[in-house]
Design a protein around this nucleic acid. Structure first.
Length: 570
RNA sequence: GCGGCUAUAGUUCAGUGGCAGAACGCCGCUCUGUGGCAGCGGAUGUCGUGGGUUCGAACCCCACUAGCCGCCCCA
């Protein structure tokens, strides 16, 4: 015992910031939400689409918008397939020095090593000259001509600082060594001396790009862009039909985690998109989507949702409104808070979102988007409202509802709740995106969609359930298995498993105990897990009649094996 | 990304410079074919991680990590 305490414990690995595990006590609720969503979507004619979890970075830059916070600072982006292009570098170097090289230009020159700068994988620096990482060879090369670039001492120090402190860091070092071995640069030629080895070479080297086959990829921060990409890629518009697509899956944004805000979070979303001739642009679609969401939230038992609705107009409307806002803000912006002063110049729309109390009066007197809608946009919005009223879906017009993704046009909306989410009270958001397909290089394909924050939905449901439990004084019990089989001795174990197999085949939910447990302990396990306990001892094995106890009533009966399954159903 | 609060047993938390605790839960026994109740007994642990101050640190200081709250943004 004391020995094992002396060995240094390995550092534990925990779920990374903003991610979490959903354990079996959580997943039933998640599955319930997803099952309900699928059922509702199916009734409205939606089919499921599954798009990749990572996409080309370019997709989000163009779709979501380069200037949005999501794209500019919250994406998990990396270079994939980037390899050091030794040939390209050699060609470059030989070309650069062809005159001086003369006949040398065809030979294999010794190489200089470069390493990736730590934590900045796309920057390289030269550390030593060598074909292999051997101190002897390095020493030789240093003597030969390397000193103008790197000193032996620097290289030694660099190696030393990478000495692993414990086993968990070995991989890190191996990676670095591997990087060193991989990145090989021709820079020196035997017998030509160090005249070749000048600092300007390093500078020039650093400014050249010697990577190949790299592409920038990004974990999806939202799914609409990917769905529209798929719509374009598979030419779904060519069918002429309206496409109604839904998805359920994780999204990734590198934000500071908070309650209801995670770096990996789940969205349930849907998109209605198609060529104009399919009716994709019809206000009926907007209303249908909103009515469907109201139905879904009702069926899930979300009690206090509120639909906030606005129209931000077409992209042309928005340009005009932005200009009007900018003009209106110019004379008063110096009275506003720092954030709003900045927004007044960079993104006037966002001023409308401001919660700064002192600025509210100014904001309320700013031009209203409604006054800048084109006739088409205004008529479209009116028809959406009319259809909602016909369906009896309550909404609140919020002229200050401005959404942060660039692709939104016309109808925008948000469903908020008051339970369980604190200030992150937006549980769901969406809107129309009539120009998105074109932005992604596709055909004209107006659309409307939404994304539900599943994590937030679940938090709300849990908060509601807690409030109910507190009000009624009752606690919700986890559903129990139908039976627990308690073998009374290890010799009964095989028979217990055989019985379990039989009952499970009959559709019962069954757990099997272990014959080495004492009977009291078995009862404890059984009561925690199941509604009935089946005792399996020598008597039962001999007679084929089993003792079954029902925990809720305390009743205990003997049941022949053939009748067990039927009796346990109740 | 910014500001604030927090981190001690499986869980909820107490402990503000001097032997690391309570409750619940857990384990054992009373009790080897009837548990839950009861009685008795037991173990809970790198006090988030790493440094520093101190004779002495869970406690004071610094850094880091993570969570929560607010901002920002969004789902």
């Amino acid at each position: 015992m004391s020995d094992s305490k002396k060995t240094a414990p390995k550092p534990t690995i925990k779920a990374v910031r903003g991610t979490r595990d959903l354990l079996p006590d959580q997943t039933p609720l998640w599955n319930h939400v997803e099952t309900t969503a699928r059922a509702v979507f199916a009734r409205y004619g939606f089919g499921e689409i599954r798009t990749p979890i990572f996409e080309s970075t370019e997709l989000f830059a163009r779709g979501v918008g380069e200037e949005t916070d999501i794209v500019s600072k919250e994406m998990f982006t990396w270079k994939d397939g980037e390899r050091f292009d030794k040939d390209a570098l050699r060609d470059w170097w030989l070309r650069k020095h062809s005159q001086r090289l003369g006949s040398w230009s065809t030979i294999d020159a010794p190489f200089a090593l470069t390493i990736e700068v730590r934590d900045r994988p796309h920057e390289h620096e030269i550390v030593a000259f060598a074909g292999e990482i051997s101190p002897a060879l390095i020493a030789t090369l240093v003597a030969f001509g390397a000193p103008s670039y790197v000193r032996q001492k620097d290289f030694d120090e660099w190696l030393a600082q990478d000495e692993p402190r414990d086993s968990s860091q070995i991989n890190d070092q191996s990676r670095t060594i591997k990087a060193v071995k991989r990145l090989v640069v021709p820079t020196a030629v035997p017998d030509k001396g160090e005249e070749w080895l000048r600092d300007d070479l390093v500078v020039e080297f650093a400014s050249e790009n010697f990577t190949k086959s790299s592409q920038s990829l990004t974990l999806r921060p939202e799914s609409t862009a990917g769905v529209v990409r798929a719509y374009i890629e598979h030419k779904l518009g060519e069918t002429g039909n309206l496409q109604k697509l839904y998805y359920i899956g994780p999204q990734f944004r590198r934000e500071r985690p908070q309650r209801g805000r995670y770096r990996q979070f789940w969205q349930i979303g849907a998109e209605v998109i198609g060529p104009q001739s399919s009716g994709a642009e019809s206000p009926l679609r907007d209303a249908e989507v909103l009515e469907m969401l109201a139905t879904l939230l009702d069926e899930l038992g979300i009690r206090d949702w509120k639909l906030e609705l606005n129209s931000v107009g077409s992209s042309e409307d928005r340009v005009r409104y932005n200009a009007a806002l900018r003009d209106a803000l110019q004379p008063v912006k110096h009275l506003m808070c720092e954030d709003n002063q900045r927004r007044a110049d960079t993104n006037p729309l966002r001023v409308l979102d401001s919660k700064d109390e002192a600025d509210q009066e100014i904001i309320n007197n700013l031009p209203k988007i409604a006054d800048y809608l084109s006739e088409d946009s205004a008529a479209h919005f009116e028809q959406v409202l009319a259809a909602l009223e016909a369906c009896g879906v309550k909404y609140h017009l919020n002229p200050r509802l401005v959404r942060g993704l660039d692709y939104y046009t016309r109808t925008t909306f948000e469903f908020t709740v008051t339970t369980g989410l604190g200030t992150q009270n937006a549980m769901l958001g969406g809107g129309r995106y009539d120009g998105l397909s074109e932005m992604l290089g596709g055909p004209r394909a107006p659309g409307i969609g939404f994304a539900i924050g599943e994590d937030r939905l679940i938090l709300t449901l849990q908060a509601q359930a807690e409030a109910d439990a507190a009000a009624s004084g009752e606690t919700v019990a986890a559903p129990k298995l139908d039976a627990y089989i308690a073998p009374l001795g290890i010799t009964q174990n095989p028979a217990a498993l055989a019985l379990a197999r039989e009952l499970r085949a009959a559709g019962l939910k069954v757990e099997v105990g272990e014959g080495s447990f004492k009977i009291g302990k078995s009862f404890g396990f059984a009561d925690a897990l199941a509604r009935h306990v089946i005792l399996l001892g020598e008597d039962e094995a001999a007679t084929g009649t089993y003792t079954v106890k029902t925990f809720t009533t305390g009743e205990q009966v003997k049941i022949p094996r053939a009748e067990l399954a039927a009796k346990l159903q109740n």
